[in-house]
């Protein structure tokens, strides 16, 4: 049993393939999370300021994406853009490079769109939780609105949002597994290919589960450490 496992993983090189898949998963997760967060921050501020029309639009985007399975969002983006991209790419003669890069682009956008919807809620909640007295103090010091936001509201909100960001990140890294359905070669897809070729799905999917578990466990410890660092000076919680 153990010898078989050794041959499968090392001599046939599946261990390397699975590790490469994990690297792709982490890269897509980080990129998607980062993009989502960057887009979510201004949207959350608009939502927080209750800007008419925009605020409602942001709200409905977040409700729809959060109420619909991630798989469906991925199908929408994949099928919805495959035609357009193909015609554009063929017109410019980049057919091959687009065929290779396409799942990555759609994958990152889909993950970003999903994590963005959740991030909006997290950031908005954190912005609302910033104590009003501090903002009044800033106003009485005659600080301009921009400075108040960048020096007081945002840093304080970031600390409050960390727990929520941790949740969104855990969900995002798990959601990257869904991208495998459109053929992106990340961890889940690699495991599925290995399972098909070697006819031993049990081992491959268990290894994939273990790798995912490792990722979530490591990021959990990192986030707890960051939380402790950010809460220094705010008293024991």
């Amino acid at each position: 049993m153990l010898a078989e496992f050794w041959i499968l993983m090392v001599e046939r090189g599946w261990a390397l393939a699975l590790l490469r898949g994990s690297a792709v998963t982490i890269a897509i997760g980080l990129l998607g999370m980062f993009l989502g967060f960057v887009v979510a921050t201004p949207l959350a501020v608009l939502r927080w300021q209750k800007v008419a029309v925009v605020s409602q639009l942001v709200d409905s985007y977040s409700i729809v994406v959060r109420g619909v399975p991630g798989l469906l969002v991925i199908y929408l983006l994949f099928f919805g853009s495959v035609d357009m991209v193909k015609t554009v790419a063929t017109a410019f003669g980049y057919q091959d490079s687009v065929d290779n890069a396409y799942p990555y682009i759609v994958g990152v956008i889909a993950i970003a769109a999903i994590s963005c919807a959740y991030s909006i809620e997290v950031i908005r909640g954190a912005l609302q939780a910033v104590p009003y007295g501090l903002l009044e103090a800033a106003k009485s010091l005659a600080l301009p609105t921009g400075i108040t936001f960048s020096r007081i509201t945002f840093p304080l909100a970031l600390r409050l949002a960390l727990g929520g960001i941790n949740n969104v990140w855990q969900m995002t890294i798990k959601d990257t597994s869904l991208i495998s359905v459109i053929g992106l070669q990340e961890l889940m897809r690699t495991a599925a290919i290995g399972a098909g070729i070697t006819r031993s799905p049990f081992i491959f999917y268990c290894i994939a589960a273990a790798l995912f578990f490792g990722m979530t466990a490591v990021s959990q410890t990192l986030f707890s450490r960051a939380e402790r660092a950010l809460n220094r000076g705010f008293g024991a919680r």
Partner: peptide, 9 residues
């Protein structure tokens, strides 16, 4: 772990 891995296992 992702639900997809669980359902596949």
């Amino acid at each position: 772990t992702p639900m997809l891995v669980q359902i596949f296992i």
